[in-house]
Each structure stands twice: as structure tokens, then as C-alpha cells.
Design a binder for these strands. Structure first.
Length: 270
DNA sequence: CCCGGAACCTGAAGGC
DNA sequence: TGCCTTCAGGTTCCGG
């Protein structure tokens, strides 16, 4: 569930960790380490200082002194909680990073889907990602080029991280509603006017999500344990049966590529 | 290469 | 009260 606005919020709120050093790492769920082995991961982190914390798509990056990168992906239910030393244990804390000032960073993940990497070159993990929605080089024309010749539903391509990085199921629905485009429209058949609207809608809903510090629809928490408020501003996502805020029609739910997709059948005609 | 469906995971919620 | 089904969704894998 953490999408770009949630990961961006976490990145911003973890900035106090820059300059801290990893004292040790506890791994309760070895499979969460995607690369290298859990033991090499632990040994590789020990004693390393965090020089920078950044985000790319839905990935969180810790650049470490000496050139390595710790990369985390929270997938659906992951969250990172900053705690003081000796905090009561949480059964869903799959990893605990112990820092040199006594604080602890808990990787909490009920559904065990989150993954971690320790690599020299971040490109090894991030290589296939599409453009960042807020990159100045990302324009409506660039979005159009990436949709060219694609017959898949636009909703499916918005979720494809190789097309565009950072958009997930909730913000995809919000962006399509904002642009008044049906989720099942074939991408290649969108007009340049619609692509421009979609481009603007994507940036608008992501920006709004960041301003609200993320959407807490289920297990998303900010590093201090607080919830985000972005879901309160959602217009169609997860709102089947409610009324469209624009025209009053009942919001529908369909399945696109196995994902629940919410839209207004009147504002977003097929 | 492109597309769509299944699988990975587990807790919450709803039906009977 | 309890069992069963459905839903949730980011990513990867696989077959067509």
C-alpha cells in the first residue's frame, strides 16, 4: 500500500537518522533480505554511517559511508517505526536496526512482503524503474511516448513501475477520476488532450497525498506511529457505493488486472 | 516484447 | 459461536 506519497513522507520524517551509525541488525524473517544473504546483510551494515536518505519510486534508499546502499521496499503492509531503546516488542517487527544513539528503527510488516537489499550499485535494484512523476524532465509528451502502442488498459499501465515510478492502486484510481478517464480505456487510444489531463492529475493527486502525509487505509504508519490523512481526501478510491463528489452518481468497483478499481461511471465513461 | 492471470503473504470483514 | 469466502495490493513469475 505505501505508494509514492507514503514513502516520500517516511523519507522526510526519517531525515534525523542522517549521520547515525548502525550498531547491529536483528532479522526475525530472513526471507525479507532479497540480497545478499541475511548474514552478509547484517555484517555489511554493522558500523556503517547513514550519509543520505532518499526515495526512488516506492523504494527507500539509505546511502552508507563506503559506498553501499541499503534499499527497502515496504510492499503492502510494511512500515518503519522509530523507537527509543528497549521499546516493547511488536510481533510484526520483522527486522530491527539498532543505531549508535540507542534508538531503534523497526521494520514492521504483518504480511511479510517487504524486501531489503544491500548493494553497491542502486541501479541493480532500481534499474527498470520508469521516470519520477516530479522529475522536471517528465512531461506530458514523455508520458505519451511510454503509452504509445500499448493496448493494455490505462489502469494497468499506471501500475507498471517501468512505465512510471511510484503510482499504486489507490493513487491510480484517484488520478483517473481527476482526469475523467475510465480505467479500462486502452492506453494507446487516449488522445493527447487526455494524456495531458492524466499527467496533470497524477502530479496533483500525488502532491495532495504528500501534503496529507500519506494515506492510512490499513497498516500504514508514519515513523512516529502517526497515521496519514490522505485517504480522507480520496474521491473514489475504496469508495464503492458512495456518491461521486462531482455528479452524485454511485461509485462502482470493477477488477482490472486483479486489482480493485473504483471509478464514477458517469464522469469516466468508457 | 506484450498481455493477463496466478502466486506470494496474512488479517479483517462479511455471509451463513 | 464458528467456519468459509472475499478483499486488500506491490511485485514477480509464467504461459500464451
Amino acid at each position: 500500500m505505501p505508494e509514492l506519497p507514503e514513502v516520500e513522507t517516511i523519507k522526510r520524517e526519517l531525515q534525523p537518522l542522517v549521520g547515525r551509525r548502525f550498531r547491529d541488525v536483528y532479522l526475525a524473517y530472513g526471507k525479507a533480505v532479497a540480497y545478499p544473504s541475511p548474514e552478509a546483510f547484517r555484517q555489511g551494515l554493522k558500523g556503517k554511517t547513514i550519509e543520505e536518505i532518499s526515495r526512488r519510486g516506492k523504494y527507500l534508499l539509505f546511502r552508507l559511508a563506503g559506498g553501499h546502499h541499503l534499499i527497502l521496499h515496504l510492499r503492502m503492509t510494511g512500515s518503519l517505526l522509530l523507537k527509543s531503546s528497549g521499546s516493547p516488542p511488536d510481533p510484526y517487527s520483522r527486522s530491527i536496526f539498532y543505531l549508535d544513539d540507542g534508538s531503534e528503527l523497526h521494520f514492521r510488516d504483518p504480511r511479510r512482503m517487504g524486501r531489503m537489499w544491500l548493494v553497491e550499485k542502486a541501479e541493480k535494484v532500481l534499474g527498470k524503474l520508469g521516470p519520477e512523476p516530479f522529475d522536471p524532465d517528465f512531461t506530458p509528451q514523455k508520458l505519451g511516448e511510454r503509452l504509445e502502442g500499448r493496448s493494455a488498459p490505462i489502469k494497468a499501465l499506471l501500475l507498471d513501475q517501468a512505465v512510471l515510478a511510484g503510482v499504486g492502486n489507490l493513487y491510480a484510481d484517484e488520478a483517473l477520476f481527476e482526469a475523467q478517464i475510465h480505467p479500462l480505456r486502452k492506453a494507446a487510444e487516449l488522445t493527447s488532450e487526455e494524456i495531458k489531463r492524466l499527467y496533470q492529475a497524477i502530479r496533483k493527486v500525488l502532491k495532495r497525498g504528500i501534503q496529507h502525509r500519506g494515506a492510512s487505509v490499513n497498516t500504514y504508519f508514519r515513523p512516529g506511529g502517526e497515521r496519514g490523512k490522505a485517504h480522507l481526501a480520496f474521491k473514489v478510491a475504496r469508495r464503492a457505493g458512495e456518491l461521486c463528489p462531482r455528479c452524485g452518481t454511485i461509485i462502482e468497483r470493477i477488477v482490472v488486472r486483479g486489482r480493485g478499481s473504483y471509478f464514477c461511471p458517469r464522469c469516466q465513461p468508457l
